[in-house]
Nucleic acid binder design. Structure first.
Lengths: 147, 147
DNA sequence: CTAGGACCTCTAGCGGCTAGAGGAGCAAGA
DNA sequence: TCTTGCTCCTCTAGCCGCTAGAGGTCCTAG
């Protein structure tokens, strides 16, 4: 990032947080773990961010929103920094994440069915015959697939 | 728990772990946070678990597998201990969890669509025009709903 | 010139475990 | 009997991705 032609519009960490949607302490945390380069400081020791930093933050935030893990984001950021490379690597990160997401959807869908079954069996009864408790207590009554 | 009529078949923590599917350190951790009562010990200071404890552990494990949070499990365990109560409370815990699960499924499904779109746009191209990076860098190009 | 914000660093905490150190007990074979 | 090797014990620290708080500095508006 940090496109040469782009104007250097230095902003405070608070402004960067507002624009990128990443909270102030989280920005500092990202700097600490090396996800974001340490920005220049003012005379008064305040961090100043330019448009490139903000783009990077927005990128990170969006990737996090999409559920990418830090490691994946690091890879994506590295790829982003080197636009001459083939996108095969970025693709494979995204594909791996997609597979994970699909698996989670499947698991949650099975879970939903089981919860509905539990709740259905529990209508207006007394706890003695409550399916919620029963299903949880006795694994055999349950169709849920364990990971 | 610890039904009076049930035979007291004391087992070691390792055996309890094997039977319940909860790992040994996790059992100790549950005891520490008060989710599981401290069991009696042998002369040699080893924990001994009876059938009731194992049922409780299995219950916890199953509820965790279903994605219930510790607080919900605590409630369910309390309800299970008092079977004279109406199941309304257990029902509402399960319902709340179901709503959450449905929400997560919806979010993940949207995410899946977006990932597929990203990957689709990325086929065999060079990174310069890679949609994965683009979509992540520019929020405007993205349909994902932020939580 | 002062009040109140925004910023700084540093440390500790969250949930829900997991890993490791360093030691004691216990069962079975030589 | 001794020894090997397994399980168990306690205790502390670490994992992720932040978040919260203390205690201080800087900057800006009135």
């Amino acid at each position: 990032m940090r496109t040469v032609s782009e104007p250097r519009s230095d902003v405070s960490i608070g402004e960067a947080a507002r624009v990128s949607g990443v909270k102030v302490p989280t920005i500092r945390y990202y700097e600490q773990i090396g996800l974001l380069p340490a920005p220049p400081r003012t005379e008064g020791n305040r961090r100043t961010y330019d448009a490139g930093d903000i783009a990077r933050l927005t990128f990170i935030r969006h990737a996090r929103d999409l559920g990418f893990e830090m490691d994946g984001i690091r890879t994506l950021l590295a790829l982003q920094a080197d636009p001459t490379q083939s996108c095969a690597a970025a693709d494979s990160v995204a594909r791996a994440h997609l597979a994970e997401v699909e698996q989670r959807i499947a698991a949650l869908t099975a879970l939903k069915a089981e919860l509905e079954r539990m709740i259905e069996g529990c209508r207006h009864g007394r706890l003695a015959e409550c399916k919620v408790i029963e299903v949880l207590a006795d694994h055999g009554k349950c169709t849920h697939d364990h990971h």
